[in-house]
Design a protein around this nucleic acid. Structure first.
Lengths: 342, 342
DNA sequence: TTGTACGCGTTATCAC
DNA sequence: GTGATAACGCGTACAA
């Protein structure tokens, strides 16, 4: 009854059963026209009856187009990525593309290996959330012979289209909010210093301070690494320095939460003593107590737009690389003292 | 300089450049032996120089094996799935398989469509977190001509291998813990009644009560739907009934949190007035205040084991379907009153 | 040990 | 309007 090893049927079988040539079947299946109504009906019927499905691999080999794209991210376990992946998958599916998912843990070697892997799989395009440097592998990135679009993180010097949120503007939003809340001694807990994303956010911090005639005091700057523990340790360092501060901007939410936990351990109240703002608006930010003021990124849309950009490059190999910047949004919650009074 | 439209090179190019036949190149690439050292060196060198990569699509067509598997889940945005996906992807990658990810939102029609889609892509196997009924589509599930392994959710009557956590045992763990905490009037907020997973957890609740000579009171049973809002509403219903209860077991963490929020709104203290336990151990459970007592599922391992099971079926089409049950684990946190005193 | 040639399942070009 | 047939890039039986 359940013959799994039943040989998969091919266009040949359909042709034979319907009593026509494979050329005719192919034409009908691809809706090319130039076929009589009669045959169309007959063939479509047998396709139904046999439950025939074209072999996409054979088709891919023939038309040199696999109808699949690759998505390379650091780690789907990172709460930032599921929404991105969902946006990508939905958009890909709409256009009939399969999505191949790859996790690199941010390791540049793995990124290169996955690009090679995807290339051998003949994917039509690649979406990359990359940590690799351009010189480190500019060869692969620009000569990959397959369109690559960068998502969420730029790669300095790479001549590739990039879909990204305006990190600097987001940081400005967060810091200016803290300032409007009456805070003046605003510290920053940065992410990994090497990360372009971090640099942009730090620049936003500096810009916002300057725009409000506040100094950027080096004793209020401390490096984290985008992790909870990094945030915790950074807050400890800040406390140990003995300098005054009445607000902290953390370069992402995970660190912001680490910061708050540390402050709580040390008897500082949030937001009464110290206002805290993060970046990313991960799910946890809304649930955490105190609920975290943060910068929302339209992650799902980012995924969708990335696919759109990739499709463009796939359709036109001469298309210019361009930056697509998404607007961040300030989400005000308790950790910064709640609503602004204006 | 950057000639993207440079024709991709083939085994033919390598053969020509190395001055050998394509058969020789193929043999060397696949390590088949029977080739002189001299040619091996020469060919491997030219492969390096040309930076040649075999075309996996052509290979797949020839050997009838695409080296890719499909993973069909409801929604990567659901906090339960990222770890599963990661487990699957890691295991797949180790064995050289690409992972095609599909989100269905739990819609049986989408599940069927994706199975067809993946079949046409000639995937070698499918991992399915399915909501479809077996009769509803037994045809597709057992005759799919491609091995399917069920993950996280069983499908009643489907003769397919299933990798799943022992939900009933998990619920017993949770409820018995509440009993040991001295609670006697334990309510349950269930998930979608139609879900097999929910049924198993409810059965565990009943079993644990019975084993401790407690009655299952219908006024302490209320249906949720696995969402936060469902949990909130369920708790409201429970409160409105006016019955006494000193503990609530929610069939998943999201509902447990909804329950706690509702209780807090209505002046009940957790865990003092009501102890609460959930199921899943999502990230949020640890961060939430009060931290949530829950049942941990080894989700990452589940993904890995699912791939292992799938590989078995792929290697031996006659392999018997079997159930692989993973042990759940009780995680005690504040929401149930913390550590047990024994 | 090495090379030639066929076929995997399509699509597309050419005859009829 | 329809049907042979040649690719697509690879693996392998067979021949040498």
């Amino acid at each position: 009854m359940q013959r799994k090893d039943l040989k998969r049927l091919t266009i040949k079988d359909v042709a034979r059963t319907a009593g026509v040539s494979i050329a005719t079947v192919s034409r009908i299946l691809n809706g090319q026209g130039g076929v009589s109504e009669e045959l169309i009906d007959k063939v479509q019927l047998t396709v139904q009856e046999l439950n025939y499905q074209p072999n996409a691999v054979a088709r891919a080999l023939k038309v040199q187009e696999s109808r699949s794209i690759g998505l390379i991210i650091p780690d789907i376990g990172n709460p930032f990525f599921p929404a991105l992946v969902r946006g990508v998958e939905d958009a890909a599916q709409v256009h009939g593309y399969a999505l191949i998912l790859c996790n690199t843990d941010g390791d540049p070697d793995k990124e290169i290996n996955y690009i090679k892997f995807l290339r051998s799989k003949q994917v039509d395009g690649i979406l990359l959330v990359g940590n690799i440097g351009f010189e480190q592998s500019g060869h692969w990135l620009s000569d990959a012979a397959v369109p690559i679009v960068l998502v969420d993180r730029r790669i300095a010097g790479a001549p590739l289209s990039t879909v990204i949120v305006d990190n600097q503007a987001g940081a400005v939003l967060a810091v200016e909010h803290l300032i409007r809340q009456g805070r003046r001694q605003i510290a920053i807990v940065s992410g990994r210093p090497a990360s372009p994303t971090n640099t942009e956010r730090v620049n936003g911090y500096i810009q916002a301070l300057a725009a409000n005639r506040l100094f950027c005091r080096t004793d209020l700057v401390v490096n984290g690494d985008f992790t909870f523990e990094g945030g915790y340790r950074a807050a400890e360092i800040l406390l140990n320095r003995g300098c005054r501060f009445d607000a902290i901007f953390a370069a992402n939410d995970l660190m912001a939460i680490g910061v708050i936990e540390c402050l709580a351990q040390n008897g500082r109240r949030v937001p009464d003593d110290v206002a805290v703002a993060g970046f990313d608006n991960i799910r946890l930010a809304a649930w955490y107590k105190p609920a975290l003021t943060t910068i929302n990124q339209p992650v799902y849309e980012m995924g969708q737009l990335a696919v759109a950009a990739l499709l463009e490059h796939m359709a036109d190999s001469g298309a210019q690389a361009r930056d697509i910047m998404l607007k961040p949004e300030l989400i005000i919650r308790q950790s910064s003292g709640g609503k602004e009074q204006s």
